[in-house]
Design a protein around this nucleic acid. Structure first.
Length: 596
RNA sequence: GCCUCGGUAGCUCAGUUGGAUAGAGCAACUGCCUUCUAAGCAGUAGGUCAUGGGUUCGAAUCCCGUCCGGGGUACCA
């Protein structure tokens, strides 16, 4: 049983005995004592004044005296205003540290037979352009939340639904046919996704020019947009694709393969992966079938123009289109099909969609539609809705070239990490290969931490000039402290210092006690991160822990400490901090370098 | 219009189920490398928690109004 619970229970007994009052558990608030005051835990006594009919000070003294007599590990207490501060005995904290030191991955729950199976969908790119900064946030959050769910004892299947069909890829295909001159990734030396993206931009350029031309000829904007030769040709490609025209399908396959090879590289760089990939081209027909079944069963209704609609006005929402009047499917149709296939493939207990908050309404509707179609898991789906990434210049738009490309960004950060390391004279002792690996670790650590430390629900600002930072509350600061602890441990080993896990020292400084308390909190933090779907909780925790460690570290020596017991204690504390930080950061997908 | 999310230091962000004097980093300014790694440490300065009310022992936190901003809102994904 944890200490807070013990204090809480004892306080309930105290109130019973002292004031004949039986409180609700929620009325007994135990919190960590603020740093300015003496003590480890604090009980707020205000809620009990009406039962004690005494001043806050006297009430606090009553309860404090009771707790001192009844809880062994309480050493002393003091009362300030309405706050009862309890001081916990030294050896209690040493025991906590010892346990954390001896238990490997002490915060991570094991997967058992009755673990839930959670499927996490993330990334979900279109295949007509490369990944950008917005995708990076999606990928990092998706990967991290999967790791966090695993750490909380769930079985997790990471999945990706690739939007590989539709008008967007046909635009790139048409542009390649027209202006590509047979260009391939091999012939141009370009990454496949970048090459295809280039033709998507090319299409838009011509399309816009054609619209302008038609409008000059006197057509309205709408007419021009519909009659421009490029868009007509792209639509024709889509029609041929749906009719399984061999040449079109082959081109589609070729260009998608280029893109997948490019994506694979980006995914690998980012360190994310998937257990199962679904393709929209396989799922959209299943979705169509389900919608038509819905029509037959009277769940949806078909208009005279043959478009299909769901009436959600009884659920407080609008009417939603499910099939266009030409019979083609929309986004929602595909998501229904994909969901059906997934639940047929796996016995999923919980489905998590990592998708931006611009689609909150979409998922609200999807849950209701799946429910109406008779899938009982429908209403239980969880939309992990995250905020947009904003640039100083405003919103990112692929076609307008105002995006931050994922590959470029990582490359730039690696460059900055490398330059800075050289300038600081770091890593000179490493081989070029090892040093390069470390630069990447640091660059990725900076990027991942920067994005994951922000509350996922909120929009965040990313300034490419200013956001590339390696000092302060950053990933590299945490990596740096880790590397320094490793250095101390290496030196201890070289000096043949044996670490004895039986810690016993006479006194523990306030700062050291703070560090132990924080280590002790780690399992609760992992749980909180899982419950709230928030990697940020873990990021900020790791920072606080490392910061506290650094502050202590600078005022106290470890290896030159002459008291062997104290030296041993500090080595154990350091080693445990390193382990906790490493396992915390691994939940964010951030690697820890042994030196930097 | 309606729905929804947000507004905390110059900037980027934290802020435990409502608790003690609202915290970090960046930027600015002062110190500290002969001592286990200075990607660090110590310090100074910077706040009407958008705003007006309400709830109570106590509000950045809960409720209502107002202002500002993001996103969504029936054939784009």
């Amino acid at each position: 049983m944890n200490i807070e619970k013990i204090i809480q229970n004892a306080t309930i007994d105290a109130l019973k005995e002292l004031y004949q009052f039986i409180p609700d558990e929620s009325q007994v608030q135990i919190q960590n004592t603020r740093k300015e005051f003496e003590g480890d835990f604090t009980l707020v006594v205000f809620p009990f004044l009406r039962f004690s009919k005494k001043s806050p000070e006297l009430t606090g003294n009553d309860i404090g005296a009771y707790l001192l007599n009844h809880i062994e590990i309480v050493e002393s207490f003091n009362v300030i205003k309405g706050f009862l501060n309890l001081v916990i005995r030294n050896d209690y904290w040493l025991t906590i540290l010892k346990n954390a030191f001896e238990t490997e991955n002490f915060a991570l729950a094991a997967v058992t037979n009755d673990s839930s199976l959670v499927m996490v969908e993330y990334s979900s790119p279109n295949t007509n352009k490369p990944l950008h900064l917005g995708h990076i946030r999606n990928n990092l959050l998706g990967y991290s939340i999967s790791e966090i769910l695993k750490a909380n004892g769930n079985k997790v299947i990471k999945t990706n639904i690739v939007n590989d069909r539709g008008i967007h890829i046909c635009k790139s295909m048409y542009a390649w046919q027209q202006w590509g001159n047979g260009k391939t990734p091999e012939s141009s030396g370009m990454k496949g996704d970048h090459l295809v993206g280039e033709f998507y931009v090319e299409f838009d350029k011509h399309y816009k020019a054609e619209i302008a031309e038609l409008m000059e000829e006197g057509k309205t904007k709408e007419e021009a947009e519909n009659q421009a030769p490029s868009i007509v040709a792209a639509r024709e490609l889509l029609r041929k694709w749906e009719a399984k025209d061999e040449e079109t399908v082959n081109l589609w396959k070729t260009m998608n393969d280029w893109v997948y090879k490019g994506f694979d590289i980006t995914y690998k760089t980012l360190g994310v992966d998937f257990d199962k990939i679904y393709y929209e081209s396989d799922t959209y027909l299943v979705g169509k079938e389900e919608v038509l079944r819905g029509v037959k069963e009277g769940i949806f209704h078909q208009n005279e123009d043959s478009s299909v609609w769901a009436d959600l006005t009884n659920d407080g929402l609008d009417k939603k289109i499910l099939l266009r009047s030409d019979g083609t499917s929309v986004y929602m149709t595909q998501d229904i099909g994909t969901a059906k296939m997934r639940f047929a493939d796996y016995s999923i207990d919980k489905m998590v969609y990592v998708v931006g908050n611009e689609q909150n309404y979409h998922f609200q509707v999807l849950a209701i539609l799946l429910d109406k179609l008779g899938f009982e898991w429908g209403k239980d789906l969880y939309h992990f809705s995250y905020g947009m990434v904003e640039l100083p210049s405003g919103k990112m738009k692929s076609r307008e070239g105002t995006v931050v490309d994922a590959d470029d960004l990582v490359e730039e950060m690696v460059k900055v990490a490398r330059d800075m390391s050289v300038e600081l004279g770091k890593l000179d002792s490493l081989s070029p290969e090892e040093a390069e690996k470390t630069f990447k670790m640091i660059a990725l650590g900076a990027l991942k931490y920067f994005i994951l430390k922000v509350d996922p629900k909120k929009n965040m600002m990313f300034n490419p000039e200013e956001s590339i930072d390696f000092n302060g509350n950053t990933g590299p600061f945490i990596q740096y402290t880790y590397a320094r602890i490793q250095s101390v441990l290496r030196k201890a080993e070289n000096q043949d210092i044996q670490i004895n896990s039986a810690v016993s020292v006479d006194s523990v400084s306030v700062k050291e006690k703070d560090i132990i308390k924080r280590i002790f909190l780690f399992p609760a933090v992992v749980k909180e991160a899982g419950d709230n779907y928030s990697p940020a909780v873990i990021a900020n925790y790791c920072y606080e822990l490392v910061k506290e460690y650094n502050q202590f570290y600078h005022d106290h020596s470890i290896l030159s400490e002459t008291n062997e017991a104290v030296k041993n204690f500090r080595l154990i504390l350091s080693s445990t901090v390193a382990n906790v930080v490493k396992s915390g950061m691994s939940l964010l997908g951030i690697e820890m370098p042994e030196r930097m």
